[in-house]
Amino acid sequence: MSRTYVIGSYCFAGDQLTNLYALNTYFNNTLNNWSVYYDETGSAYTPSGSNQFYVKVFETSNVNSVGAQMDFGYAQTSPGLNATSAPSTMQYFGAGSAGILLHAKDTAGSTALVNVNYIMPNGNYLIGHDDGLSQFGTMAYGYEGS
């Protein structure tokens, strides 16, 4: 018998469920900005001990009616909320920084979700990048592991 939690198309179970993190950040109406993801305590998230973070789902929920074009990645320093420049060590997941990993819908209240299978190394912060003028909340779901 086992407990499970399905988020997006991913089923967390066992140690993955025990170590599940629901991270959150937001973007305001600024063109081209970077925000770090926060844990439930309000701290900029970085994996504990020597762990890595295994990212499975990114999700956005729009506040205004402007589509968001998002990238995700990580860096060794936290940019905080809505920084206007990327950290110097920024490493993008996927194709890069053109805002092409996830396109959020352009209707207020709408959501968009992408399932991924990325690894953020220990000693880094998870970061979102928005290259549009959208305002939205965003969640990242994944688990810590060695």
């Binding site: 959150n24 950040t25 937001y26 926060y38 439930e40 305590t41 309000g42 209240g109 959501t111 909340g137």
Partner: peptide, 22 residues
Amino acid sequence: QYYGHGSAGILRSTGVNAGDEA
């Protein structure tokens, strides 16, 4: 004590019509 990023009011946005659910 807020969960997540803080108190800006956009941890999650909902729909714009009566009956919308999130």
